[in-house]
Design a protein around this nucleic acid. Structure first.
Length: 468
RNA sequence: GGGCCCGUAGCCUAGCACGGAUUAAGGCGUCAGCCUUCGGAGCUGAAGUGGCCGUACCCCAGAAACCAUGGGUUCGAAUCCCACCGGGCCCGCCA
């Protein structure tokens, strides 16, 4: 949780010094209100009145010290923003095990200890001349360039917060944190804990992982390389235990940017919080949900509204998650609002539809199918053979996903399986098959297929319903 | 100046990490089909290029597409290497 950055400080400036209400208008989430409205306005005020910047540094200092009225107020705002953001995460079916706070990393004293170790090993040195005079720097042996880690005024720069955090993850520094319960049960039933600097209980559930994988924006690749290099040079450290899984950003298509009132040059534009050029997850989900709702209603005239709402939300989440997951993480995703609203073709809802179709066959079946080697061998069409073969490949997809740190391998598998199921569905009859042995064999195949599909969907977090 | 990523059909993408089985695989869009049906959010099929101002049809040309482009390695390259073009990103005593 980035609770000590300047962007967050700007929001506090807005509430404390510019008189913006800290209550969002009805129907607006608090995080969206802070980001869309307060933050943008404060940034604008800075450009009109540069003196306001002093308030920002005042707030930053107060947060840094962690004591006093402003700091306490800031903490309460952080909690409210976090609560709103968790709501969105949970809506997407994501959950966490532990909350980490940047401010706690800073206050934990880990940096001081790591810094001492780095000095001892000669990884960092005090520059005595040139532009960086008076700074502690890490020299790059390859390029000869220097990365400043401690400013000439003695304060630490951004990477200097990341280094101890990374070291903590793989256990190169003693764990300074206590752990306490933050939320007993998230929607998936698991508990959510938070680090604390005083109190809490000790646990070795989190710090000192054998392998840490940091999923961070590709633009941070250079800094992450520095972090990995520093870890490698520490006692017991190795860069192999700290991996950076980079991913390219999501940008906005020309037409989507124009829809937000921006005129852009090229084919797409990078999002910018400062400029207000971005789309919120909740907004996208809402719009997807609307489209899904009308489609669902069309197909299910008699169902109660509540049922339709639940299904539409599941479809919206499936569409968004699958869309983002199926793509190459090294490629910029150009997000287009219209394009993203697709519910047909190679999409999350296609998986859901396929699952529901398979379930439907099983629901219309009475009794348990009896299957034998003999009846199984009665399935002779190429569609049946392909489906059987496909079923056995789930673990291959999962293994590849692990090997390449790429969950989309599972997404690809799920899609291919769904294609095989639909192909099967169109080419053979199950419940109408007159030969009872063959019918049972096919039923067993449908049952197996629906279970493997369910499993792969749950791995990639695509929700499913037995009817949609 | 240094470094990283991307470039595949009208559009979006898969395949590249380990070079070889295919006609380079899907989706969207377009056109034509499939509902007395276990669900049509599905399935099946079609569309190479150039010329005639444009479109449809016809006609004509043409051994005749292909992974940005050009080389290289190889028996074999979308995949490996080099170069080059285009797009994006990073290189701060910001975070």
């Amino acid at each position: 949780m980035d609770d000590s950055g300047s962007q967050f400080a700007d929001v506090i400036v807005g509430f404390k010094f510019l008189g913006y209400s800290d209550q969002p208008p009805p129907g607006t989430k608090f995080d969206a209100y802070c980001g869309d409205s307060v933050y943008t306005k404060v940034t604008q005020r800075y450009s009109e009145d540069p003196a306001l910047k002093q308030k920002q540094s005042l707030v930053l200092r107060a947060i840094e010290e962690g004591k006093g009225e402003i700091a306490d107020y800031a903490k309460s705002v952080v909690k409210r923003i976090l609560a709103a953001q968790l709501e969105t995460c949970w809506r997407l079916g994501a959950s966490y095990d532990l909350l980490n706070w940047e401010s706690q990393v800073v206050h934990s004293g880990m940096w001081e200890r790591v810094f001492a170790m780095l000095k001892e090993n000669g990884i960092v040195k005090l520059e005595t001349e040139g532009d960086n005079k008076g700074c502690w720097v890490i020299p790059d042996p390859d390029t000869g360039e220097q990365k400043v880690v401690v400013r000439s005024d003695g304060t630490a720069v951004y990477v200097a917060k990341d280094i101890p955090y990374a070291a903590w993850k793989i256990g190169l520094v003693a764990d300074p944190f206590g752990y306490e319960l933050y939320q007993a049960a998230q929607p998936n039933g698991s508990e959510l804990r938070s680090t604390v600097l005083s109190g809490g209980s000790r646990t070795d559930d989190f710090a000192g992982a054998d392998q840490s994988i940091s999923v961070i924006d590709a633009r941070q690749a250079y800094l992450q390389k520095i972090v990995a290099k520093v870890l490698e040079s520490m006692k017991g450290g190795s860069s192999a235990r700290y991996l950076h899984r980079g991913y390219e950003v999501v940008a906005l298509s020309k037409s989507t940017a124009q829809g937000l009132g921006f005129r852009i040059e090229g084919e797409f534009a990078h999002m910018s919080g400062r400029a207000g050029l971005y789309v919120n997850v909740d907004t996208v989900l809402d719009r997807l949900g609307e489209r899904a709702r009308s489609e669902t209603r069309k197909r299910n005239q008699k169902e109660p509204d509540e049922w339709v709402s639940d299904v539409s939300e599941a479809i919206a989440v499936a569409a968004l998650r699958y869309e983002l997951l199926k793509q190459d993480p090294d490629r910029i995703i150009v997000f287009d609002t219209e394009e993203a609203l697709k519910l047909q073709g190679d999409t999350g809802p296609y998986l859901q539809y396929t699952y529901a179709r398979a379930r439907r066959i099983l629901d219309k079946t009475e009794g348990t199918p009896q299957i034998s080697e003999e009846s199984a061998s009665m399935m002779k069409t190429k569609q049946e053979a392909r489906l059987v073969k496909k079923l056995s490949a789930l673990d291959v997809g999962v293994a590849r996903a692990g090997e390449f740190l790429s969950p989309r391998e599972v997404a690809k598998f799920a899609h291919e399986l769904a294609v095989s199921i639909n192909d099967f569905y169109e080419s053979v009859q199950v419940n109408r098959e007159p030969n009872p042995s063959l019918r049972d064999a096919r039923l067993a195949l449908v049952d197996a297929a629906s279970r493997v599909l369910a499993q792969s969907m749950s791995i990639i977090g695509v929700p499913r319903r037995s009817r949609i």
